[in-house]
Design a protein around this nucleic acid. Sequence first.
DNA 1: AATATAACTGTATAAAATTACATATTAAGT
DNA 2: ACTTAATATGTAATTTTATACAGTTATATT
Lengths: 206, 206
Amino acid sequence: MEALTPRQAEILAWIRARMAEEDLPPTRAELMKAFGFRSPNAAETHLRVLARKGYIVLQGGTARGIKLSHALAGRAGLPLVGRVAAGQPVLAEEFREGQLPVDPKLFSSEADYLLRVQGMSMRDAGILDGDILAVRHETAFTPKNGQVVVARVNGEVTVKRWQREGQQVWLLPENPDFAPITVDLTRDSLVIEGAVVGLLRLGKHF
Amino acid sequence: MEALTPRQAEILAWIRARMAEEDLPPTRAELMKAFGFRSPNAAETHLRVLARKGYIVLQGGTARGIKLSHALAGRAGLPLVGRVAAGQPVLAEEFREGQLPVDPKLFSSEADYLLRVQGMSMRDAGILDGDILAVRHETAFTPKNGQVVVARVNGEVTVKRWQREGQQVWLLPENPDFAPITVDLTRDSLVIEGAVVGLLRLGKHF
DNA sequence: AATATAACTGTATAAAATTACATATTAAGT
DNA sequence: ACTTAATATGTAATTTTATACAGTTATATT
């Protein structure tokens, strides 16, 4: 399929999100408003391009006649991510173990991906080795103390309980056999990968 | 929910089918054509009634602004069962807390219902109070020793690890604060309700 | 230097769609 | 008998929506 420009991808993403949420395709005017266009024709031309490139199908003479093409329409579920190598993006293609048919909206907060847990450092929080966490990808947020987060310390991805006081952050395990990770925000690199919004344990561990 | 007349049910069914197929709600004119009305107002009044009775939601001033109400829109999913009173069937209507959009085939073995966990007796197996278990309903099967099952002892529903030797069954908790339940099959009543095939923990507990 | 493409503005209009109002028939409920 | 509700017809106004046509600006391509 022909590639999209960043702007086109942005517009397609918005359309998909809108349709998932409202269950109704947008009008040109709605697109216009959402992107701050001053002309409905800006929306029209974008739609034409998306249609020409095969990402959507336009039904002429029909209000809201926008369909996602089959390839995109398949509400696949969420990607399951396995062991993430240091320094690499969590959602990089090579760490994907597959796709699970899980509704992102099942959880309290909408989940973006699933992450398989490695190790027993959160055992006493009921998070065991092999469990699958539903994660909301949000790098720019401030966790509350006590919240379970997916963080990256010096490139390494870890799941821990967040505790912060001033410039000092502790990533607390829930297992006395493990030591807390202490991070001084003024010196160490710490990236929040997301918030844990759910947990899934499948079959064979029972 | 208020009952529908046959004609109203027919119209609602058509709308649902149309939306499933076309992924776009119909207009009054389309409804009119489908049912042979000679006036779009026939469609309008039907829609008003369906909305008043709670089967659909109409968005005023919006082309194709028809939404199926949540009860109808929610596809399949699994029933979530809460506290089950002694002696009553697990799936009795009065214990249902709702329906969750979970694919029954997500688990190693196909799940029939979801059961909310009460208490901490399985804490060390990573099953916490408030967790949701996916259960395969199967009364006539022989669990393997060590398997986590939903059983009913003297009418009371419980989740424990199964251990059997001869006519003696132990239902083992995974928490030293709780005592195993000992069942002599020659004297006590024991019904297996199902096998635990998965676990779900949603949001707020993190 | 000329051309093409992306990403728009601005205006206009026809078609699609909602929705009000007036009316009719039949069946069910009080 | 009277009223209400269901199921329509018929007309028309208004609003929403799609979409054509004529430009503009910036960037990349030939």
